[in-house]
Design a protein around this nucleic acid. Structure first.
Lengths: 219, 219
DNA sequence: ATCTAAACGGAGGGAACTTCTCAACTTCCG
DNA sequence: CGGAAGTTGAGAAGTTCCCTCCGTTTAGAT
């Protein structure tokens, strides 16, 4: 699916575009939004100017790169809804999501900023709907503790994805630990009230670096 | 306990020193290591030059401010060892530590960087010893899952302290969730091998900003 | 009241980062 | 081969931040 193809790119330009996209995927995967366009350009073996010719802003590059990945995650989430066991569906989704976050820090950054609806608002909506459903079904089933809420899911993603840079399998260990705490069990502590959607967004925006590193903090 | 008091400070200097310390505590508490000395100076109502006269580097200020706090945490940890129930001792320590982290982001940053032994190496050693003991006792007691290790403790601190900026009580919710996953329980998943000490240090250094914001990433 | 060493302030040096531009050059392709 | 499309990479312009410098103020002893 080429971009708005008003005219086919010259062959070398096309080749460079592909190089840029490939390099950007790699660089964003390891450094997340913190990656710079100089990095990307250097990695692709082209000048920065070339990157800017193809993608007017860093934001545009991010969108070009992650659109399909995000859709992929949403698709998996929707598949998980079809799982016969609601518990398995929910946990399979969480494991899958954390796995992608650990593999690709850029994807993590995009996904965790989905709630703000600045990028990919449609995918964001769909994902929210699915997660809400997944949680509701698992509670109905009786396997998920009843004081768990859909808003907890992205928070857990944030917590676990701290470990993205860790040696392979580390995030897995802690995700399993957390999931073991999610089971309905009489010995469980009482969690108290869940965070509201807005509170979650507040927390997440503190954990995801902005695409443009300029602005820092309010007062 | 005045610093190496070769000569008593002039009264105005002493007053300013105290103001600086107080302001630094506040500013570091909210912004962590990311706080700037300009911030501190402004907050204290003095010029930056005054801060530098009293504390030769930012590092020195950090050490002056957090030495006693760190010792306080270590002391609590040691008290927790005396708790009759090993489980209560361990969890009380974890809750306490996370509480302090949520209240004071600077303290969090210091504590999580303790393992590198650059600052407060003695307190760091003592804390490590106590945590190891706390974990061992709870496993002996049979209340803590046997695949949990002492190296997991600081990682859990990191995960939960992501939520430090969140509305009051948020970190509490997720800490309780994680702790519920720590109980020995036949239904638990198998966690697999724990992280080594070095791996933990690697993870933590990725989560704690450096005091000096210069260096970013290796190649 | 005077005087001097101590303390002060805060502009700005310098280093490290960014994103993004532009004028000079190169490559493709009809 | 001519010219449009593409490339280049130094650097403009903007951040942020640590720390220094030095003219000015002031505490406090005489």
């Amino acid at each position: 699916m080429p971009a708005t193809a008003s005219r086919p790119l010259r062959r070398d330009a096309q080749r460079n575009r592909e190089r840029i996209v490939a390099a950007a995927r790699e660089v964003f995967a390891t450094r997340g939004f913190a990656a710079t366009l100089d990095d990307v350009a250097h990695h692709a073996g082209v000048g920065v100017g070339t990157v800017y010719r193809r993608f007017p802003t860093k934001e545009a590059l991010v969108e070009a790169i992650f659109a399909d990945r995000i859709e992929g995650v949403v698709a998996v989430a929707e598949q998980c809804l079809a799982e016969p066991s609601a518990w398995d569906g929910l946990t399979r989704f969480m494991v899958y999501a954390c796995h992608t976050h650990a593999e690709d820090r850029g994807l993590r950054d995009v996904m965790l900023s989905l709630g703000m609806k600045k990028r990919f608002p449609d995918s964001g909506d769909r994902l929210e709907t699915v997660i809400t459903e997944l949680v509701a079904r698992a509670k109905d089933e009786g396997t998920l503790r009843t004081d768990f809420e859909a808003t907890d899911v992205p928070i857990i993603f944030t917590m676990v994805s701290d470990l993205a840079g860790a040696p392979a399998g580390a995030y897995d260990r802690y995700l399993r630990l957390v999931i073991d705490g999610l089971r309905a069990c009489p010995r469980n502590a009482d969690l108290g009230p869940a965070l509201t959607r807005d509170q979650v967004i507040g927390v997440l925006s503190g954990c995801v670096p902005p695409v443009r590193p300029r602005s820092s903090a309010a007062q």
